[in-house]
Structures are given as structure tokens and as C-alpha cells.
Write a protein that binds this DNA or RNA. Structure first.
Lengths: 257, 257
DNA sequence: GAGTGGTCTAGACCACACA
DNA sequence: GTGTGGTCTAGACCACTCC
């Protein structure tokens, strides 16, 4: 089925006095409205880039530039060798994180009936950076455990989390100890359960590595957080940095006057 | 000064057994490390794209693809007709938003000694969407004021904020009333001061319009928030959606067990 | 006007998926 | 093998900035 008119911005270049936008923007809009009209259903493939180029009378490079815009916004997903597909419409897993309380990722997911999975990407004992040592109230020579984990929920990668733990405070720890267990539970078991934390949120673009791990395009918006947690004695016990998929994670908080 | 070797990944394609990455990634890394080494100082221009292409032995398109990666990550800023510049190193204005309390943008900025500026982009009375009407506890026929403002701090665009206000509850309101004044102060003055709010945060990529208003590249990560505020009587008084520059805004919150 | 980034093209080859 | 997206090229013209 031929969905598009053969040319863009047909007769009058800017009938309404609008500045004519670049072709790739026009192509992006054309594709977007076709998707919105339901001409391409979620999960279905778009026509191949080469075919779109012919149909729309533009070069393939221009089509790619247009599709790249849609991809970074999460409207479509590209699969090398296979095609470009309309993204599943409603976010299949949308997490709402209640921020009033100090909870772990594992708890969060369980309270929503999702299986909190994960995979340890790396586990090392190392010297923290000067900056991090200060935050954890350590002298630069002291060791920290550095745990890097990929967090999943409902089988889908949701976040990459890196935790720094005060090694001296916790005693011996091995990679097996952090496998498939909440770090909070582990800290609690060793008498270093956090009771207070500061959490900072900001938005960043995914670099190659995070994009690969989370299954999003390079440049996709991620929610980046840093959390510093203290135990009852006021000692810092954990410094955690996490990158959540922007399209799959919501933080919700309650504010009062 | 010739900064780069004339070719990338010179003799052995993958000496350490590493899969050779695309050229534009290599170019991006080359430029990034040159910036990190201080060979290009913040505020200074990079060599022109055409010159980089010649120096590095790649096409200009490839150079552009590499620079695009750096631009979306905020390392460099492109200025049409003028050049590509290394971004100012440390974020010159980094806001930390204390989330424990219900504060307005204006208050936030003042408490940091920054002038909270702004510009009303649009002010209309309109019918809310069904979805929004529900949130504001209105019947679909009732009117809302829709205020769209560009928020600045220290002379720099920081956020685009759109507020929906219950028109019936507030009485007559004109564009002049929302000019240069905190909406919270205005609500307070009309006996609809908010005492409780829910705030949701997520990360999104900037579209053309937001990018233009905020002075960032299309696709840059933004912190998107939606806030629904209630007055003392438990009536919803404001539904606000805002997009903050991800590289200029931090949210910080305190959590307790 | 000279120099810069922004857009666009036609064509090529590579890497991956799938039958 | 065939079809798909991913990368890359050389060259062109446009739009903007700045002198």
C-alpha cells in the first residue's frame, strides 16, 4: 500500500508563510503522523529505508536522519539486519518510585509484582577516587567494594547501578555475596543498614556503553541518580550511582508546605 | 599546531584484539581526549569540520557524526556560521532543588542568590484535555488558564514550564498578572495557596521546540516533571509540567527509613 | 566576501538476520 | 543468498556569522 504522497511539501513551498523546514524534519513528521494514524502498528516494521527514500523522493541518508530522530524519542526501534519497528505503544513496564521512604530497587519491584532481576557486571575491591573517598568519609588509602549491576524488571533491563561500599566496615565480601541479593539486605545483615540518604537526580544522554547495556539508542535520555546513605551511627555506608531508562522509570514524590 | 596523527588506528587494525569501532566513534574519542588533555580550552573553537576531515583522513560527514555525539553529551556547542566550541567546563549554574519542602522556582533561585527571571511564552484560557480535567477535578466544559513560561536564572534559560490553573477557582486573570511574578504567590493571594503536591520526574530527549527555547541540541536530555498541587481544602489548584535542562539542574531529596 | 556549520545527494561496501 | 540497517565517501549548495 502506498501510504505517502510521492513528494513532500508538494506545490507551494510554504503556503501558510511558514518557513520550510529541512526535509529530514518533514520526513520525520510524515512518518510520525503515519504511526499516529495507526498506518503502522506497534511491533510492525516500517518500510525499508531504501524504499522510503524512493517513495518520498529523498536520499537514504535523509531518511536515516529522520528515523534517527524518531528512534531517539523512542517512537521506533531499529534492529540491525532486520528492520525498523514501531515501538510498543504504552510503556509495558512503567515504574513509579515512591520517594518518601528509603527503599531498595528490589523492594520497589516486588511491591509492584515485578521480578527484580539483575546481573553483576563487575565486582572489585579498589581505591576510591579522592572525591568519592570524601563522600564516604574515608582516607584515600582505604578500600571500597565497587559493585556494578544491571537491574532488570519483568525481564527488561531497567538500570545500571554502581555501588561503592566501605570495605573496612563490612568485612570480607565476594562476588557471590552480591549476586541476586539486595545490597540493602546485605548491609542490614552486617549491621550497616542505612537509615538516611540523600538522593540527587538529573538527566543525561546515554553513551555507547550504557545504551548497549540498557538496550536503548545512544543519546537516549536517562535518569541519573547518585545516592549517599548513612547508617544509624551517622557513618556513610554506600555511595550509589544509577542510570535508569528515561522511558521506563518515573520518580514520584510528595511535597508539603 | 597539528594535534592529531594523520590517520586513525594506524598500523594494526586491532592490536589488542579489540573489535575495531566505527570511524566516527574513533574520531569522537580522539576529539574528546584532546579536549580532556586541554588541547582545546573551554570556550575555544575546535578546528573547522572540513579541516578536521582532512587532518584525520575521513570525510566531513564522518566528522560531523562524531561531533554530533559530543554535542548531544554537552561537551561541545555548535554555533551555525561561527564554529564548534568546547563547552564551559564546570556547569556555571548548577541548581540544587531541595525537595523536602514545597517551594516555587522563584524561591529556589532567590535562596541561591540567583535572579529568577522569566518570560511568558503564552497565556490562554482554554478547555483542558479530558486527562488534565480529571487530574484537576474539573468537568470537561470548565475553563483553565494555561500559562507557558520560560524560566531563567542568572540570565540563562533553565526550564520551560506550563501551568494549568483552575479558572473558575481563581477568577479573572490576564497575561499581565502572570508576568514576572511567582504563580505560587499569585495563588496564595487568591486564597488558593498549595499546601501539598505530588511531583513526578522522568528523563526525556529534547524535541526541536524545547531545544530551541532552552538553547540545547535536539535530543539533549531533559528532566521532565509533572506536579499536581492541592490547596488546604484538598482541591487541586495547579497542574504544572516543566522541562529542565539536564545539564543545569539537579534535584536533591532526603530519604528516611 | 570568506569561513563556518547545516542539509542533501548518489552510490558503495560492511555487518547482521533470517529463511 | 537476499534483504535489512550501519558506515562511509566526495562533492554540492544553503544559511548564518563576522569582518
Amino acid at each position: 500500500m502506498t501510504v505517502f504522497s510521492s513528494r513532500l511539501e508538494a506545490a507551494s513551498p510554504d503556503a501558510a508563510g511558514l518557513a520550510s523546514s529541512p526535509r529530514y524534519v518533514q520526513v520525520a513528521r510524515t512518518l510520525e503522523s503515519a504511526i499516529e494514524r495507526g498506518e503502522y502498528q506497534p511491533g510492525n516494521a516500517l518500510p525499508a529505508e531504501r524504499e522510503l527514500a524512493v517513495r518520498l523522493g529523498v536520499s537514504r541518508v535523509t531518511v536515516r536522519q529522520a528515523i534517527a530522530q524518531l528512534a531517539v524519542r523512542g517512537l521506533v526501534v531499529r534492529r540491525h539486519g532486520s528492520g525498523t519497528f514501531v515501538a510498543p505503544s504504552g510503556p509495558p513496564v512503567r515504574i513509579q518510585h515512591p520517594l518518601s521512604r528509603l527503599t531498595s530497587f528490589t523492594e520497589d519491584m516486588h511491591s509492584r509484582g515485578l521480578s527484580a532481576g539483575g546481573r553483576v557486571l563487575s565486582f572489585t575491591a579498589a581505591h576510591p577516587s579522592v572525591h568519592d573517598a570524601m563522600k564516604l568519609n574515608l582516607s584515600p588509602g582505604q578500600l571500597v567494594y565497587r559493585v556494578r549491576r544491571l537491574r532488570t524488571a519483568g525481564g527488561e533491563a531497567l538500570a545500571v547501578e554502581e555501588s561503592l561500599l566501605n570495605a573496612g566496615r563490612l568485612g570480607p565480601l565476594s562476588a557471590a555475596d552480591v549476586q541476586d541479593v539486595s545490597l540493602y539486605a546485605l548491609l542490614q545483615a552486617r549491621g550497616a543498614g542505612p537509615v538516611r540518604a540523600l538522593r540527587q537526580l538529573r538527566a543525561v544522554n546515554a553513551d555507547d556503553e550504557l545504551a548497549g547495556l540498557l538496550g536503548v539508542s545512544v543519546g537516549a535520555a536517562l535518569l541519573a541518580t547518585e545516592r549517599l546513605a548513612w547508617d544509624a551511627a551517622g557513618q556513610p555506608v554506600e555511595l550509589a550511582r544509577a542510570h535508569y531508562r528515561g522511558d521506563r522509570y518515573d520518580f514520584v514524590m510528595e511535597l508539603r508546605d
